[in-house]
C-alpha cells in the first residue's frame, strides 16, 4: 500500500468562488487572509475542517473558506459546533463569532462550551459594535458609547471577553489584533494544536460604525500593547515600562531600569499560571493599561468530546455491544401462547 500522500495546501486552496461581501476597509479581510494562509501551513485536511458561525458580519466567514462550513443562527454557533464535535470528534471544528453574537445573544452557549472544554477553536471578532444591524452598541462597548440605540451614550459596563473565558474555565485563551498577521498566525497555530476549547479574541476594526476604536492600540503597539511571552517579565514601551503587583494585589505600571525598578520586580508571564493571575492580567484594559496580547492562558485537560466517547466505549467494554433484541426484552416479560392466555 502506498503511503498516504501529503497534500500541501496553499492559501488559494482555501479560498471559495464566492464574492467576499464585507465593507471596504473591514478588519475581517485581514483576518480571513491570515486564517487561510496559516491553516494552509498547518497540514489540515479541507474535508476534515468545519467552520461554524452565528449571525453578524464576521459570521459570513464560512462562505469564504473552502472547507465545510455552517452559517447558523444568532448566538448558537457554539451549541451547534458542540453537537458536531460530539458526533464527529475527529473533525477540526472552528467557531467564528463576534462580540454581539458570542457574548450577548449567545453568551450562555459560549460559557458552557468553554466550561465543558469541548474541542472547539473559537475566534471572536471584537469590534465593540453591532455592524450588520447598523451600529448599535454591543456588550463590549465602552461606557458612554454613542450609537444608533444609545444617542445619549451607553450606560452599561462592558464585558471583557478574556475575563469571561477565564471565569468559564477555558483552557486556552489568547488575544491579538486583526492586522497583526504574525501574531494571529502564531496563535492560530497554538490553538490548532490545543486539544480543548480555545478562545481567541481578535481586536477588529469596523470602519463604518466604530472606526478607529482600536487605532491607538494597533498604531502605537509599543506603548499600548503588552506582549505576553512565556517566562518573561511583563514589559512594554521598548522595555522601559513594566507591570508590577502592589502589596495590595493591584497591578501598576512602573518604570524599569534607570530610575525605575529592576525587571525582577515585575510580574512574570506564565501561561499555566493560576486563574487568579490570568484574571489579573486580563483586567488590564485600555486606556489605563496597555492591552495584553498573546497567549494569556493555556493548559490541557480531558476534552468533553473525548470523555463522552470514552463513556460509550467503556459501556461497550463493560456490558458488551448492546443487542437490540435483548434490550427489547429488558425487565418483566411474559409469554402468551396460541390459546391467547398467558403461559
Amino acid at each position: 500500500m502506498d503511503a498516504p500522500k501529503l497534500v500541501k495546501l496553499t492559501k488559494k486552496d482555501l479560498e471559495t468562488d464566492q464574492d467576499v461581501r464585507w465593507c471596504p476597509g473591514c478588519g475581517d479581510y485581514a483576518i480571513l487572509a491570515t486564517v487561510q494562509r496559516t491553516l494552509a501551513t498547518l497540514g489540515i485536511k479541507r474535508e476534515n475542517t468545519v467552520f461554524v458561525s452565528g449571525i453578524g458580519c464576521s459570521s459570513r466567514f464560512p462562505y469564504y473558506m473552502n472547507t465545510f462550513g455552517f452559517h447558523t443562527i444568532h448566538g448558537r454557533a457554539p451549541a451547534i459546533a458542540t453537537g458536531l464535535k460530539l458526533a464527529r470528534p475527529e473533525l477540526d471544528v472552528w467557531v467564528i463569532t463576534g462580540d454581539g453574537d458570542g457574548l450577548s445573544i449567545g453568551g450562555n452557549h459560549m460559557l458552557h462550551a468553554l466550561r465543558r472544554n469541548v474541542g472547539l477553536k473559537v475566534i471572536l471578532f471584537n469590534n465593540q459594535i453591532y455592524g450588520l444591524t447598523k451600529g448599535q452598541y454591543s456588550p463590549t462597548s465602552k461606557v458612554g458609547t454613542r450609537a444608533a440605540s444609545t444617542p445619549s451614550g451607553s450606560i452599561d459596563h462592558p464585558l471583557n471577553p478574556l475575563q469571561f473565558a477565564i471565569g468559564a474555565g477555558a483552557t486556552f485563551i489568547a488575544r491579538t489584533t486583526d492586522t497583526d498577521a504574525k501574531g494571529l498566525a502564531a496563535i492560530l497555530d497554538r490553538a490548532y494544536k490545543h486539544q480543548g476549547s480555545a478562545l481567541i479574541e481578535i481586536l477588529q476594526n469596523c470602519p463604518v460604525f466604530n472606526d478607529g476604536v482600536w487605532d491607538q492600540v494597533k498604531d502605537d503597539a509599543a506603548n499600548h500593547q503588552l506582549p505576553l511571552v512565556e517566562g518573561q517579565p511583563l514589559l512594554f514601551a521598548g522595555g522601559t515600562k513594566g507591570i508590577r503587583l502592589s502589596s495590595d494585589l493591584v497591578p501598576e505600571i512602573v518604570n524599569v531600569g534607570e530610575g525605575g525598578v529592576a525587571p525582577e520586580a515585575l510580574l512574570v508571564h506564565r501561561e499555566r499560571g493560576s486563574s487568579a493571575y490570568a484574571h489579573l492580567i486580563s483586567s488590564l484594559t485600555h486606556p489605563d493599561f496597555p492591552v495584553p496580547v498573546g497567549v494569556l492562558h493555556s493548559h490541557e485537560k480531558a476534552t468533553f468530546d473525548s470523555m463522552a466517547h470514552q463513556q460509550v466505549a467503556d459501556a461497550i467494554a463493560k456490558q458488551g455491544k448492546g443487542e437490540l433484541g435483548k434490550l427489547m426484552l429488558q425487565g418483566m416479560t411474559w409469554e402468551v401462547g396460541v390459546d391467547g392466555i398467558r403461559a
Binding site: V50, V52, F70, T72, R76, A79, I80, A81, T82, G83, L84, K85, L86, A87, R88, L91, N108, H109, H112
Partner: peptide
C-alpha cells in the same frame, strides 16, 4: 436552544 442546536450540528456531521 442548545439541545436543538446540538442535534442540528450532529446531523450536519
Amino acid at each position: 436552544i442548545a439541545a436543538m442546536g446540538a442535534v442540528i450540528g450532529a446531523a450536519y456531521g
